[in-house]
Structures are given as C-alpha cells and as structure tokens.
Design a protein around this nucleic acid. Sequence first.
DNA 1: GTCTATATAGGGATAGAC
DNA 2: GTCTATCCCTATATAGAC
Lengths: 210, 210
Amino acid sequence: MARQTRERILETSLAMFNAQGEPNVTTNHIADELGISPGNLYYHFRSKDDIVEHLFARYEASVGDALLLPDGRAPNLEDIWLQLHLVFESLWGYRFLYRDLVDILARNRKLKLRFARIMNRASTSATELLRGLVRAGVMRASADEIHALAENILLVATFWMSFDAVRGGKAEAGEADLNRGIHRVMMLIAPFLRDAERYHLNTLAATYVR
Amino acid sequence: MARQTRERILETSLAMFNAQGEPNVTTNHIADELGISPGNLYYHFRSKDDIVEHLFARYEASVGDALLLPDGRAPNLEDIWLQLHLVFESLWGYRFLYRDLVDILARNRKLKLRFARIMNRASTSATELLRGLVRAGVMRASADEIHALAENILLVATFWMSFDAVRGGKAEAGEADLNRGIHRVMMLIAPFLRDAERYHLNTLAATYVR
DNA sequence: GTCTATATAGGGATAGAC
DNA sequence: GTCTATCCCTATATAGAC
C-alpha cells in the first residue's frame, strides 16, 4: 500500500494547506491527521518542501491544461468566460500557494522559476485572446492598453483569493469567492467592449455576484 | 536613552521586515542588528507581535493621512494622480504587511479589524472620487461599474507589491515598482474616461513605466 | 512500510545580576 | 536600561527496531 499512503499524504497535505495555510501546517499535523507516524511520512517524502513541490507539479499540470487555447476558430466572449472559469477553478484547488506566494517562492528558487513560466504562458494567452477580440471588432483598445489590461488581469487572477480572505469578514470560503473572482476580471474587460457587449456583460455579471 | 532604544527597535524592525519578510526576521536577528541583547529588546516590547502592532499603528496613521480628501472643490484627474502617489508611498513604507498580509491578519484579530476599517475608508474614498469624475463628465460609468472598479482598484492597491515581487526576476525593488503600481491603477481607470482624457492619460502613463 | 524514540536546531520569551 | 544565561516549546528530520 506504499502508493496509497504516498497519495494520501499528498491529498491530506493539500487539504490542510488550503484550509489553514501552509506555514501553519506542520509535518506532524499532517501525520496526525492521517493517523500515521512522522517517521512514516518522512519515509515517503524527504522534506516538507518535497511535498510542496509535488503539489506544485500538480498545480502546474492543472493550470497548464486550463490555459490551453481551444484552437480552431477564434474564441468569442462566451468561450473566454468559460476558459476563465476553468482557470480559476484550477487556481482555487491550490489556493494555499497563493495565500503565501511571496514566501513560498522566495524560499524555493525552482518553484519561483516554474511559477514565472506559468505567468508568462498566462500573459501570452491573455494577450492573444484580447487581440482576438479587437480583431473581431468586439473590443476597442490600443496595443499599450491591451498590454496593461493583460497584466492587470494576471494580477487579479493571482490575488483575488487573498483579497477575499482579507476583505469582508466572512470566515468560510467557497464557490461564492470563485464567482466574485471571475466577476472582477469580467469588469476589468467590460469597459473596452462595444456598447452592446458591454451592456450585455453588465447584465450577465450581475448574476455572478451577491 | 529609553525612548531612543525603543524607537531604534521599531525603525530597524521595519527595515528588516520590509527587506526580508516578517516571518523571516526573528527577535534575535533584530537585537543582533541593533547590537543589543534579546533581553533588552523584550524589556521594550512584550512580544514580537507587539512590535508588529506598533508598526501597524504607524502604517494606519500614514495611510489615514494620505486618504484624507482635500476638501473644497471637487478634485480633477491631476489631483487624483497626486493622491494616488501619496497613498502608494505610504503603503510602500510598510510593504512587509502586504507581503504576508493573509497570515499576519489571520493570526491577529485586532489587526484584521483595523485593516478592514482602512479598506472601508479607502473604498468610500475611491467611490467618491469616481462619482466626482462622472458628475464632472470626465468619465462614463454606471453605478455597478463604479462599484466594481473601486473594488478592483483596492485589489491592485493591496497587491501590486506582491505581484512585482513574484513577477519578473529583478531582485531589487524600488521607485520603479511604485511607478508601475500607480500605472496599473491609472490603466484601470483609463477606459472609462472621455476620449480626450483617455488619450492624454495613455500618453502620460507611458512615462510611468519602463 | 511503519513504528517509537530521539537528535538537532531555532525561535519566543523570562529571570535575575549589574 | 541593559546584559547574560537559560527555559520552554515546537518544527524538521533521522536512527533503528519491528
């Protein structure tokens, strides 16, 4: 059952990291929660960081998939909202990374590089999509505006979870946060849209929040 | 020289927290850096958190000042950029808070409440300013759009420092980051502006970055 | 693979002399 | 006010028996 214990460690770690924050979850806590000994945990993973790195690999794969552009015809607005949803769900699954992002990346160079690669892919992807919208005449924006908008989308995509954790007093997080995050990005794009689409989006967006 | 040691502890702590991150700076490190004993440090402050709380109070005062709306006539765009600059400089001076915001607030309820109060003030202030721009005809936006925009401004204002730390590889931070942060907020507002102002802002903004 | 027991290290914090 | 010495605790990680 080696494989199974290893897998359970990863799953439990992820759940506890997400719930309590990675710095506040010790290897002993994880072992306790699983009902195994700390020694056993260290038989399967060399270090706590080793666990984090394996979880990061899964995060990487998950987001990587979600970022894949559905090729074929140029995506329209509906396609974009769908993809946005997929990406945000991926991030949400590994929200512990974002909660202490600066510290986690500061203490692990490899992860910092890998994260930078993901960010670059996301940036390229967002820019492509926005350019597509401009070409399709759905949106009006200069090259500089597209660039700034893409960066702001990345910023919001990176920190909407932390922002929700810090804003408002509601303790429990969940799907509502996801919708709020998506809503934020929509409203970032809205003002660049043609009046018809802008109006439609504002209507649609209203269903996302509150 | 009691007063002076106390003050030096606060100043040095702030500098070290900002440079290395609060979780990575121990009370012993601070004492070492100052050339005093750990015991002496604990004579002046009951705990590490006590130091953080005193620094937070200064942050609170600093941001509070910067958020004061210059009353009298309704502010124009120039006034707003100036105030934005003031606010961001305040935040920058206490950037350690933002680097580990979620953790710091999660472990200290009082600070969480006080931070929430600042956020509410900032939200009100931003909304007021935006409404002023709409009334002045400089900007076009629905009530919902203003609300969403204000929230996104808050999000960017809260995490632009972390975003820069995590994006791009440049190690050293400084004034360039400040300008990038301000630029981001400008570009959040730009698409809502009348064409004349939007164009002018894009020109102005170009000097802020790169 | 899994356990018990323990090494090692470091951080926060205090006692008591000066 | 300041120092030296030290306590206490918790976290990561390892050794060696089962």
